[in-house]
């Protein structure tokens, strides 16, 4: 193998993001570097970019997230049916209007990320990026409100281990276990989703996410909608028990 071939083959197997970009760009020529070393390429090669595969992969991952949170909803269902009155009492510690505001914020952000896909499909990169930034701003807003909500609970000693918590009846304690676990896990997903979108913004700016090739943006949107979906169920179950 010549030195040049060795280098190119090595680059194909290289892990870094920089080479991923290079690979994406050279693939436009329907010739990937491996092919330069042998005469034959399979039409159904696993190394070609496939938007449909990409989308299917994302949806499959979303199903795992649905079942992950689904498990928690099952636990919620059992304990609420066992302690309906205490769940109601405990829910009075939450501010319905803060929750409603957060719901509106997330719904808005779902719209903006969906619109950013439309924008990119129509070739309007600038608008697409702006809409993505709005989505991220909404995510931040959500997290800030969450921060204040949790803070208020800590102030009232409502976290496991704190004084007031130990005095609560069983059902109320179970409510708060689920509240912190589920909104905490959800908040983590908000952060991950926002970071994902930041990466997409860089992709659009760099030219690796284009009107012809926007799977990354679409997938980040799908993930974001999932985050919204989970909140759509969390909100009534914790804030609107009455």
């Amino acid at each position: 193998m010549t030195i040049r071939m060795q280098k190119e083959v090595k680059e194909m197997e290289d892990w870094s993001v920089g080479v991923m970009v290079k690979k994406q760009n050279t693939e436009h020529q329907t010739l990937n570097i491996k092919n330069m070393n042998h005469a034959f390429t399979l039409p159904n090669s696993g190394h070609n970019f496939d938007a449909k595969a990409s989308k299917m992969g994302m949806w499959l991952f979303l199903y795992t997230e649905l079942l992950l949170f689904g498990g928690l909803f099952l636990v919620y269902m059992v304990y609420r049916s066992m302690y309906p009155d205490e769940f109601l009492l405990a829910s009075f510690n939450l501010d319905v209007w803060m929750g409603t505001l957060n719901t509106v914020i997330l719904l808005t952000s779902s719209m903006t990320i969906a619109m950013s896909i439309t924008a990119l499909q129509k070739g309007n990169k600038k608008l697409s990026i702006q809409l993505m930034w709005i989505t991220i701003a909404a995510a931040l807003g959500f997290l800030i409100i969450k921060y204040f909500e949790w803070g208020a609970k800590f102030e009232h000693g409502l976290f496991p281990g704190m004084d007031h918590f130990g005095t609560l009846p069983t059902g109320e304690r179970l409510y708060f276990y689920l509240y912190f676990f589920m909104t905490g896990l959800h908040g983590l997903h908000v952060i991950i989703g926002a970071i994902f979108i930041v990466f997409v913004i860089f992709g659009v700016k760099k030219g690796t996410v284009t009107p012809e090739r926007y799977s990354l943006l679409e997938n980040s949107g799908l993930y974001w909608h999932l985050v919204d979906l989970i909140w759509i169920y969390l909100f009534p179950l914790f804030y609107l028990i009455h």
Binding site: F49, A51, L107, S110, M111, A114, T118
Partner: peptide, 25 residues
């Protein structure tokens, strides 16, 4: 296989969905 000739949802459609969601909320 790239994203070509895929259906584009209009801004209007997205906004209508959003409005319905706010209403339901």
């Amino acid at each position: 296989m790239e994203n070509k000739n895929e259906h584009i949802t209009s801004y209007k459609e997205h906004f209508s969905t959003y409005a319905a969601l706010i209403l339901l909320t």
